[in-house]
């Protein structure tokens, strides 16, 4: 059956779309859902500062997948081969298409975080940084939903989203990933050392196909035993 899984899509989002809750930010920082003072007020400040942020955006490019090799731990899209590691390549098995995505919470996060840091208020700076981390993850969830709607219309399913840095996938592959995206796509750029700018940005791949599966939480099956997220028992959305 012919489908419409191709093209480049980008979306601007509002802070309100993401529905970021104070309790979620507090729990993410290890403070429980009801933070003690002054942390509660600090979260309020972070939310207020970032709520007017107009630079939350994300998008994806859809390309046909040439090959997924579990044995080699790779996925090949057009002529570019990503060395994702055996685990991620097994999760991407049966992908007919791949959505190569990026999403950002904008420069505002580091602007305000640095502002407080430079004033010596490291706690407020950290609270803004943590809020920015959740903001970009929340924004990416919405971008994923847009992709899901598109896949559903074409009778296709999605895998989790996977990013360079997850499991055995080296961050250096970010360079290949960005080669598929238009220059400064969604205002995200990449340094030589594969650091995204703005800092609160994410990028990665979602597999698309009739026979792919969404697996939810995967950290327990990952071989990266020393991973900071696993060690801190922090839930990572995929």
């Amino acid at each position: 059956m012919k489908n419409n899984m191709k093209g480049t899509y980008s979306y601007k989002l509002d802070f309100a779309d993401i529905k970021l809750e104070k309790a979620e930010i507090s729990a993410f920082m290890g403070l429980g859902e009801i933070p003690d003072e002054p942390f509660g007020s600090m979260i309020d400040i972070a939310i207020e500062l970032l709520s007017t942020n107009k630079n939350i955006e994300g998008g994806f490019v859809i390309k046909p997948v040439s090959e997924v090799s579990i044995k080699e731990g790779t996925i090949t899209i057009e002529n570019e081969t990503f060395t994702t590691g055996k685990m991620i390549s097994s999760f991407l098995k049966n992908s007919e298409y791949a959505a190569l995505f990026t999403c950002t919470a904008g420069f505002e996060v580091e602007k305000y975080s640095n502002q407080y840091k430079n004033e010596g208020d490291f706690v407020q700076s950290y609270v803004i940084d943590a809020t920015g981390s959740l903001l970009v993850e929340g924004a990416m969830e919405l971008i994923y939903e847009k992709l899901q709607q598109m896949a559903t219309l074409n009778y296709l399913n999605l895998t989790n989203r996977y990013s360079p840095g997850y499991c055995e996938w080296k961050v250096v592959d970010q360079q290949k990933l960005f080669s598929f995206l238009p220059s400064k796509f969604c205002n995200v750029s990449l340094s030589e050392s594969s650091l995204m700018s703005p800092v609160k940005s994410v990028s990665g791949i979602v597999g698309i196909g009739k026979n792919v599966k969404y697996l939810g939480y995967i950290c327990d099956s990952c071989k990266s035993l020393g991973c900071v997220y696993r060690a801190k028992k922090m839930y990572v959305k995929h």
Binding site: M29, G30, L31, F39, F122, V123, Y126, V127, A130, K232, K233
Partner: peptide, 12 residues
């Protein structure tokens, strides 16, 4: 893992 980053920053 008995305290987290915000508490360490508060101690500092």
């Amino acid at each position: 893992n008995k305290v987290f980053v915000p508490q360490v920053l508060m101690s500092a």
